[in-house]
Write a protein that binds this DNA or RNA. Structure first.
Lengths: 352, 352
DNA sequence: CTGAAAGCGCTTACAG
DNA sequence: CTGAAAGCGCTTACAG
């Protein structure tokens, strides 16, 4: 006979203990070991026993206690999505959201929960590093546009499976073993600049990202490459830098406009900065695309969040997130780190 | 003498077992029980023993194994941030990001990890409900703009601590015990419409949200209230509905422009919809704010993501997220559900 | 194919 | 104030 409560009041938030593997075993008429075997792949279990166990699971509403499982397996069956950007910028960039959503859903398909961790300050970084290296998660999806990230190195050195979003350009060798997934920045930039050239533009300036980010370095390299190839000017006066924020793009564009008043096209290394560029151009009285053609990068929600809609380079975020999860699950399973570079695509809209 | 490895190769991803409470006890020269007491508040421990334990923790780099702790305490020391919106819209709305970041950080201060869960489809909802009711998290921060959410009811009925963002307007009684935190939608709408009236506007239309959301209902009520009070028209022809998306705002505005060509102001129930409204107005050749003054709601990043910058009503997201976490931690600790309504603030920019 | 048993790392009455 | 011991719910060799 089941006894419950035994005279002690249940407070409003106290829940009944959920059924355990023991309850399932009793209902199914087998041992706990057999239930566990059914739960873990069903090897070495007779069809009859397996069916009895499955029926008992349905009947009891049993759900495995992950803490108990983790305690013995040593795995947590969860992963962290770690952002090491300064906090303010993090969520201003729509790319983070797309990536976060994609990773959450790709992991859900594996029944693996995602822990969101933010480590913008040194103190937060210490907290997170401690948490992760203590084994509370099986692996880390790392997102930071700036490379040479000390967190990445620490985690990799501690033997934690880590997959970065974007190509690491830190001190060579140390990050060589850092698995990563990225879009082909250089080739994407080339495609956009070729497009601007094909439009007949000849004074093509660029708002580049910071040079400690792969998007900053590689998209600038792609811009230069195509211009040099085409025999068009590609000097330093045609380059200004932004920090991937809208305001940064606006400032950099104002700077370019002052330095190169006759520019007829602008390749901006991110859509969000491009929105700022559009604002600067409007304030300066330039019509887009008539006076100045503007090409962005990312195909983020920012590309269509205002007028004119941006012609841009699409980063395949869905694939980036699913590949990040795939590579991370592989690492956790013992595979070697790998790098995945995904192709981009030109998306033509109104601005160029 | 420590033995490790004992002849079996460590694969590249295998980590050394982290130190346990047993290691700390040995180094400190006390029992495991004493170490545990120091870890859990330090009651009934002599100062000398406590200091020895703390030193041993530093020396060994010990971090508690949360799985073992949870197994015995029955708490997971983690909470879920659950989104039950259809997936596409989720991350288009900048408010979600601000809220997510705020909650993550408020929880981090309690050393409580946040699990991000998305349940847009019925299948996902079942998965998540099962996971949560199995006790894998201690509580849920629930975000969905649509109310009468079946997930909320199920969780509350299962005795799970839940705090919703936004006032629930589901079937009365059933959601009465649902703790929630919200901005004062009605009062915020009133303030904005009063502002538009003070600008001398007399034909003030509105793009309202869906009527199954509190923001849809209450902001519309605030709009109507002030107009009636001021003796201005507030009929149905002045109301169009959007779904909180940019495109929805654009469509609704085009509809209004057709129906009420002489409108001179527009109160839009969200900044994102207001950006769409601005696009519709521009396409129709209306100047903002000269021809039509536009007031938004939220003060989300969308408010300043284009020109003109939006005059809007600020929702205190930082406080909303910190209050949600505070109320949830209270619920988990056994407190009764409570509702927190936070004041809003008019932010004047260019559009009105 | 199956059960009995050990043990993962921790917390918490229970004695002292 | 402190230690020895039980036990949280599970997985996994180990016998049979």
């Amino acid at each position: 006979m089941e006894e419950s409560g035994e005279g002690h009041r249940m407070s409003s938030t106290e829940r009944r203990r959920p059924p355990t593997i023991h309850d399932v075993a009793r209902v199914a008429g087998v041992s706990r070991g057999t239930v566990s075997r059914v739960l873990n792949g069903g090897h070495n279990v007779s069809p009859g026993a397996a069916e009895a166990v499955r029926a008992a699971i349905r009947k009891t509403g049993y759900v495995v206690n992950r803490h108990a499982r983790s305690l013995i397996t040593g795995r947590s069956d969860s992963v962290a999505f770690l952002l090491t950007e300064p906090q303010e910028k993090l969520f201003e960039d729509p790319n983070f959201n797309v990536l976060l959503r994609g990773c959450t859903q790709a992991l859900a398909a594996h029944d693996v929960p995602l822990l969101l961790m933010i480590a913008g300050t040194p103190a937060e970084r210490r907290r997170v590093t401690r948490y992760v290296t203590a084994g509370h998660v099986d692996g880390v999806l790392l997102v930071s546009s700036h490379t040479g990230d000390p967190v990445a190195e620490q985690l990799v050195e501690a033997g934690i499976p880590v997959v970065a979003c974007g190509k690491p350009i830190g001190r060579k060798g140390r990050t060589a073993r850092l698995a990563h997934v990225a879009a082909d920045d250089r080739d994407g930039a080339r495609e956009m600049v070729r497009h601007l050239v094909s439009l007949g533009r000849r004074r093509i300036a660029t708002v580049a990202g910071p040079m400690d980010t792969p998007g900053g370095v590689d998209r600038l390299a792609g811009w230069r490459e195509v211009l040099v190839e085409a025999g068009l000017p590609a000097g330093e006066e045609l380059v200004a830098h932004g920090d991937y924020s809208r305001d940064g793009g606006e400032r950099a564009t104002a700077e370019l406009l002052e330095r190169v008043p006759d520019l007829d096209a602008l390749f901006v290394a991110s859509d969000l900065m491009a929105r700022g560029a559009l604002a600067a151009l409007e304030r300066a009285g330039r019509r887009v695309p008539r006076d100045v053609a503007v090409g962005g990068f990312d195909d983020s929600p920012a590309a269509v969040s205002g007028l004119p809609e941006l012609t841009t380079i699409r980063q395949p975020w869905d694939r980036i997130s699913s590949e990040m999860v795939r590579v991370l699950m592989g690492l956790i399973g013992g595979e070697e780190p790998s790098a995945v570079i995904l192709p981009t695509e030109l998306v033509r809209r109104e601005s160029a």
